[in-house]
Amino acid sequence: MYEPNVVGDWQEYDDGHAGLRVRVHRLEKAEPPRGRDDAAEGLVYFRFRVTVENRATEHFGIHLEDGQLDIRAGNDGESAFLDWRNSQFIEGFDVYPLRRVTSVLYAAAPEGCLSLVDVQVQLKVDDEWTERYLWSGGIGAHDPAVGVGARTDSAVDSLADQVISFLEREAGPGPAA
């Protein structure tokens, strides 16, 4: 079963890229450093980071640009605006053993959609496409950070509650006691 990662979790690669891992983290509201893009008028900016870490014994050439990211916001999965002018991509960087490389990305979406943000990443490693992975998270005062397995007291299900419910339904009934 394909399970999304929670923002902040590491995703390990297998096969030809064993030892390489990636994560999406630090999802937060933030204004872009070079000013707002006119296409983002009426939208709220946020930023996140994509970090690639090499735990192998050889180096990997990493490439990550705007066409390798898909950002969706809200319950309906509306496409968020990725501000490529303000974002810092990873373009052909060699990541040596025990080293990391981080990309800082700026995007924008309607304020009401920020409580549910999905980021899909597909790296290019040594001129080969890797598998696509998804991270889910949210921003906002109404959706505080929730620990793994924790439940919120709000009447509306948080993202963590929705993920836990989905996983419980997929797992089916537990073993008989």
Rank of each mutant, 00 (worst) to 15 (best):
G42I: 10
D37S: 14
D38L: 13
I62T: 10
R55Y: 12
D118L: 11
G138W: 12
N75E: 13
L134G: 09
E31V: 06
D118A: 01
L82I: 09
R47M: 05
F46L: 05
V44A: 05
S103M: 06
N75W: 12
D83Y: 01
R99K: 14
H59L: 06
G74Q: 02
G92K: 12
R47W: 01
E31Q: 14
H63E: 02
E111M: 13
R99S: 05
E78Q: 04
A56P: 11
L82R: 03
N86L: 12
E58K: 08
Y133W: 04
L43M: 10
A73R: 11
P97I: 10
S79P: 04
A56C: 14
G137I: 12
G140E: 11
I90E: 02
L43W: 05
P97T: 09
P110M: 00
V95F: 06
R36H: 11
A40E: 08
A73C: 11
G138Q: 15
E91P: 02
S79R: 01
V117M: 08
H63C: 01
Q122T: 15
W135D: 09
N54I: 07
L43Y: 11
R85T: 10
E131R: 03
H142N: 15
Y106D: 02
I139E: 10
A40D: 12
A30L: 15
G67T: 03
R99H: 12
V101P: 14
L123E: 07
P33R: 15
A56M: 02
R100Y: 14
D37H: 06
L105F: 01
H142W: 10
